[in-house]
Design a protein around this nucleic acid. Structure first.
Lengths: 336, 336
DNA sequence: CTGAAAGCGCTTACAG
DNA sequence: CTGAAAGCGCTTACAG
């Protein structure tokens, strides 16, 4: 194990000062062309690579963005990561990911939040659902934050109109002649209440009301935002007599779980039960699932762009980006 | 914007040296209990948080692991990330993710590989498929590497027996009486050849041979490892006359795309076409997909553990971990 | 149990 | 165009 070359080694071998090496290798101006060439040659020969950690300490920039999400195994989070990563790596930033999936994790994360200073230049929060108090804690990081999917006062955000999305889905079902339309929500996600299901539920109820249908509380059920939870909830729904003829699920993963279980129980989809999801998951088309599309990967890209924008977000004002959703009609819905 | 407290501020306020502050706050021994208490109180009052970057430079440890994968939007990669993250964060490590999805990206990554020294203590490579030459380049990082899904000489790995997994799937189809069994592969993934599809194809062919069936080259098709690719390839397969009665896809994403398209074309699955996948994707059960299960999330966990193991992998010998696969029979397969 | 000092490997005014 | 020097905020022998 031989010691790796440092900037000092290069400086000595090239017969210049470390300051000049530093400038030459970073392509800063004010270096004589021949000097730069010589230094580059020496650096190459010594297989020199600057120590990023040291450079960052000296310059005060980490060139790193942190991304916090519930669980990286979930589709939504994985898409945000994919989108953000593409933008960040194109701009020379590293991406640090951190899961916050239990109340415990969450507490620990918030407690250690200020230690992020010195590790990241900015933070992307996915489905974090911070209380005002927790948001205050996050402000102690003294780094720009952009949230995806929710809004927190004082932070930038990339969001959709959840109310409108849910209205789109519900209106579609209503227009097909359905009256008993169930809602599968996920209020208990990780034990934290999120404004997202709340907003979507509002859109669902308002649309029903507009159509003169009164929402039956017995038709709202929790699917936990998971495929398995969606399957279980559907089973319960189908035991109702009469059972609903349509079902709006607040995520495609729940919707696909619902479809799978309904069919396993001998029900026809959409014959006996029409199903609408939310997301437009990569597999929604293969499933023939009617859903409300939100451009999750683009949202991740946007979030990253806000952080590395030409106007360094460090000093920029928080901005709120809204992206559009649209209804995608496939085979899982049919007239009542 | 007030300046954040540094270790010097704490030392001054507590009337001790920075060395003592450093020891006290990291819970090192040899600090008088009352001194430690006082320092902790002062640190808290000043809202002091150590600057991770600086600590890392001084100590020579980055407490960070890098993970490189094709695309984080794909199920396989997202599961590995989820598994690795859980282990790493439990051990106080940060996780840096980096996508390598194009030949261009790949080249840039390899070129800058040695700059990882100083940023990570170790590296997890997912589906990287390095050539011997590229592996050599990776060795210049001078950091332990563990690969997931493939083996590279000199590096640790977490792998499954691809040959056996494919044999399991093929034997299942053969035992159901199928003779015309198609294989959907993904050799052209990102333009790099991978040993994974090759091994699985071997298992498929050997099993057919064992059963006295000669593999028809016309029944091997490329599905690009994507849902859409799987759908397209299936369409081509079904135009054959006679078309195959069974299809083994090297990933569940392709298999689900195949199922969706086959049904959209009016085919019954499994009535007209039996389908087996590979992975046991989270949605495979909802799809009723027969598949070969590999514990991807556990593989991510294992990879991380190899890196942060009690015996620091830094000096450990490369180890090769094999995990088992199993056939999960669901509704997408039926007798011929 | 505690401190003074060197050092981690860079960057950045400041001078020339 | 180049260099000497201070500094980024910590950790770690070494002494006592």
């Amino acid at each position: 194990v031989t010691r790796r070359a440092t900037i000092d080694d290069v400086a000595r071998a090239a017969g210049v000062s470390v300051a000049t090496v530093s400038r030459a290798l970073r392509n800063l101006p004010n270096v004589a062309p021949e000097t730069r060439l010589r230094i580059q040659a020496v650096a190459h020969e010594l297989d020199y690579e600057p120590h990023a950690q040291a450079a960052r300490l000296a310059s005060g920039k980490t060139m790193t963005v942190g991304l916090v999400a519930p669980l990286f195994g979930l589709w939504y989070a994985s898409q945000v990561v994919a989108g953000a990563e593409a933008v960040l790596s194109a701009h020379g930033y590293d991406l640090l990911v951190h899961a916050v999936d239990t109340p415990d994790n969450r507490q620990r994360f918030l407690a250690g939040a200020s230690s992020l200073r010195g590790r990241v230049d900015g933070l992307i929060l996915v489905d974090f659902f911070a209380t005002p108090k927790q948001a205050g804690r996050l402000r102690t990081v003294h780094r720009p934050v952009v949230t995806v999917g929710e809004q927190i006062r004082g932070f930038s955000s990339v969001t959709i109109d959840n109310y409108a999305g849910a209205a789109l889905a519900t209106r579609h079902l209503v227009s097909l002649g359905h009256h008993r339309i169930a809602l599968m929500t996920g209020t208990s996600m990780y034990g934290y209440s999120s404004p997202v299901p709340t907003e979507r539920a509002r859109g669902y109820r308002a649309t029903l009301a507009d159509a003169g249908i009164e929402a039956d509380p017995a038709l709202t059920i929790d699917g936990d935002f998971t495929t398995e939870g969606g399957a279980r909830a559907t089973e319960a729904l189908l035991e109702l007599d009469p059972h609903p003829t349509a079902l709006f699920c607040l995520s495609d993963e729940m919707a696909m779980g619902a479809m799978g279980r309904a069919r396993a129980l001998g029900m026809e989809v959409p014959g006996d039960l029409s199903i609408v999801g939310f997301d437009d998951h990569d597999l929604a088309e293969a499933f023939g699932l009617t859903t409300v599309r939100q451009p999750v990967r683009s949202m991740g890209r946007l979030a990253a762009e806000l952080l590395v924008a030409p106007t360094p977000a460090l000093e920029a004002e928080p901005t709120e980006q809204h992206v559009d959703v649209e209804l995608v009609v496939r085979g899982s819905t049919a007239p009542a």
